[in-house]
Amino acid sequence: MPPQNAVRPRNRTPGRAAVDNATGRFEPYRTVPVDDGWVGDDDPPPVLRTQIRHERPRKVITRNSSPDLPFDRSINPYRGCEHGCIYCFARPTHAYLGLSPGLDFETRLVARPSAPEVLARELSKPGYRPAPIAIGTNTDPYQPVEKDARIMRRILEVLLEFRHPVSIVTKGALIERDLDLLAELAKLNLVQVGISVTTLDRKLCRAMEPRAAAPQRRLQMIEALAGVGVPVRAMVAPVIPALTDHEIEAILTACHKAGARNATWIMLRLPLEVSELFQDWLRRTAPGRAARVMGHVRDMHGGKTYDAQWGKRMRGEGHYAEIIAARFSRAAKALNLHHDSPPLRLDLFKVPPRPGDQLSLF
């Protein structure tokens, strides 16, 4: 006879990478699932529907001064990400909302429908000075919810109207919907797009990034963007030791063939709750490789699963990290993908006239 209040064994929820929904680290109480006797071990796990709530931000441009990042400002149209990438370093941010970095991050999203209007107000302030705005560095602006919300498209319309430079990172095929706007921005040298390709293995991709575009689809995205003149950067991010690291050269070759102009890479990062979520996923998905993967991770971070120090968190340290860096550099140079992205134009920025504005005589 099973023990009273026993926790039902966890099952992977269809279309989701995490299986846990541990309480956020700032909450005073924790919830624990128990078996009430009504669900059998053979019953399928429940289907979790995506929930969306709206937020009215007072500002949308977030500033940073990190020496690890090539930008000082960014925009996040959404909090949480339905793509559900198990390794996503943004998962811990959901704890600030009183939600779990686990399944809540994938299923309980926050959208900002008024972000385009707020952005226009911020860009119109007298003291504003333009610099490229990064979008997609935290959560993906082209995740499935964008299809109906269209927040990202309206942000692009504002940026084009202001002639403001933008850098985009995505795994979402929905970006092809906005090729018209991106092509116009590209003609003015106001846009760069990074497409993240983590693996070319469809089965691994489905388990690791359950609702992101398939690997071949991402290559088609690169081809479509390059076809209308948008400069595309291939992003091998993250490189997962002993799981995807053997694909570096193949990924770069495929992205180059599709039309990518340059390439970058980032090592796997496991901050805060991401560490346990990823390790749990690894034990379930690739149990034979779990020890080796985490062994490399700890070797790169002084015995820990993560080191948040600037200059170390993106690449790691030690022999293994040096080998990955050397392999990437050699492959990128061979394919002529090793160049930095050319700077975007800043001199075209101009606040458009609004109804009632005093027009210039000159």
Results as ranks from 00 to 15, higher is better:
residue 211 R to F: 07
residue 211 R to I: 02
residue 212 A to C: 04
residue 212 A to I: 02
residue 213 A to G: 03
residue 213 A to I: 04
residue 216 Q to L: 11
residue 217 R to C: 05
residue 218 R to I: 08
residue 219 L to Y: 04
residue 219 L to A: 00
residue 219 L to P: 03
residue 220 Q to K: 10
residue 220 Q to H: 13
residue 221 M to Q: 05
residue 221 M to P: 00
residue 223 E to W: 12
residue 223 E to Y: 10
residue 224 A to G: 06
residue 224 A to F: 09
residue 226 A to R: 10
residue 226 A to S: 15
residue 226 A to N: 08
residue 228 V to T: 13
residue 229 G to L: 10
residue 229 G to R: 04
residue 229 G to W: 03
residue 230 V to W: 05
residue 232 V to W: 01
residue 232 V to E: 07
residue 233 R to I: 11
residue 233 R to K: 15
residue 235 M to N: 10
residue 235 M to Q: 07
residue 236 V to N: 02
residue 236 V to T: 06
residue 237 A to P: 05
residue 240 I to W: 07
residue 240 I to R: 01
residue 241 P to I: 01
residue 241 P to Q: 08
residue 244 T to Q: 03
residue 245 D to G: 05
residue 247 E to K: 00
residue 247 E to D: 09
residue 247 E to T: 00
residue 248 I to L: 04
residue 249 E to A: 09
residue 251 I to A: 14
residue 255 C to D: 12
residue 257 K to Y: 07
residue 257 K to Q: 13
residue 258 A to L: 02
residue 258 A to M: 11
residue 259 G to M: 06
residue 260 A to G: 12
residue 261 R to G: 14
residue 263 A to F: 06
residue 265 W to M: 05
residue 265 W to G: 09
residue 266 I to T: 14
residue 266 I to Y: 02
residue 267 M to G: 03
residue 268 L to I: 14
residue 268 L to A: 06
residue 269 R to K: 14
residue 270 L to H: 09
residue 270 L to R: 01
residue 271 P to D: 11
residue 271 P to V: 01
residue 271 P to L: 02
residue 271 P to R: 05
residue 274 V to L: 06
residue 275 S to H: 12
residue 275 S to L: 01
residue 275 S to R: 02
residue 276 E to V: 13
residue 278 F to I: 01
residue 279 Q to V: 01
residue 280 D to I: 02
residue 280 D to G: 04
residue 281 W to E: 01
residue 281 W to V: 09
residue 281 W to C: 08
residue 281 W to Y: 11
residue 282 L to S: 03
residue 285 T to K: 03
residue 285 T to V: 15
residue 286 A to E: 12
residue 286 A to Y: 10
residue 288 G to E: 14
residue 288 G to Q: 12
residue 289 R to D: 08
residue 289 R to K: 15
residue 290 A to R: 10
residue 290 A to M: 12
residue 291 A to W: 13
residue 291 A to M: 13
residue 293 V to R: 01
residue 293 V to N: 04
residue 294 M to T: 13
residue 294 M to A: 08
residue 295 G to F: 14
residue 297 V to D: 05
residue 297 V to H: 01
residue 298 R to A: 13
residue 299 D to G: 13
residue 299 D to N: 14
residue 300 M to Q: 09
residue 300 M to H: 05
residue 300 M to W: 00
residue 302 G to V: 15
residue 303 G to E: 07
residue 304 K to C: 01
residue 304 K to F: 00
residue 305 T to N: 07
residue 306 Y to Q: 08
residue 306 Y to F: 12
residue 307 D to H: 04
residue 307 D to L: 01
residue 307 D to Y: 00
residue 308 A to N: 15
residue 308 A to I: 07
residue 308 A to H: 13
residue 311 G to K: 08
residue 311 G to N: 14
